[in-house]
């Protein structure tokens, strides 16, 4: 059962990621990224992370991707024009990607005894997670809320400034 679910959603994940690369219209890429994120949420659930699965759906597949699709529609982004890209990307980038993937794959496949994930494995409950989050890690948690507040202010300031500059004629 675990095996079937893993292959189903890992396949969906990879298909979505490859589709993201192949599509030329940004809205299609955004929709395939939503597929990737939702199937990742199922994989988190298979690994026993119930809170993160919910947060993945709500925060990533929900909030962040709505923001993306909203910006795509707001800016009326059309098809991208395919160009060859920079020479640095061709000569340095792709060999580096291949090297990183090969290195990671060999290290992962050589590491034996990492264990297995099965359906019977325990699930980390949200209670367990929140106990640590609100006792040992209370300060980082609160700092994160300040960070998000600053990000909101920064986003508003950045999105407004261009408008103000144009009307002020600076």
């Amino acid at each position: 059962m675990h095996l079937i679910l893993f292959f189903l959603f890992a396949g969906l994940c990879l298909a979505g990621a490859i589709n993201l690369l192949l599509q030329s219209h940004p809205i299609n890429s955004a929709l395939s990224l939503i597929v990737v994120m939702t199937s990742l949420a199922v994989l988190y659930l298979l690994l026993g992370a119930e809170f993160l699965a919910a947060a993945q759906v709500i925060v990533y597949a929900g909030a962040v991707m709505v923001l993306f699709t909203f910006v795509i529609m707001l800016l009326n982004a059309g098809r991208e024009e395919r160009t060859l890209g920079s020479r640095v990307a061709l000569t340095l980038g792709f060999p580096a990607v291949a090297a990183i993937l090969a290195l990671l794959a060999t290290v992962i496949l050589k590491a034996e005894g990492l264990g297995r994930a099965a359906m019977q494995d325990g699930i980390t409950s949200t209670e367990e997670l929140s106990k640590i989050l609100f006792t040992n890690l209370l300060l980082p948690f609160e700092v994160t809320s300040v960070l998000i507040l600053i990000a909101i202010l920064g986003a508003v300031a950045l999105a407004r400034r261009g408008d103000g500059e144009r009307t002020a004629g600076k």
Partner: peptide, 28 residues
Amino acid sequence: HGVPLEWYLLLSAILFSLGVIGFLIKRN
């Protein structure tokens, strides 16, 4: 008896590489 964790890590590595490739080839 379930899925070896290496497969999850491999999937993660492949997804990361696809992300890097997208960063390099996408023009939008």
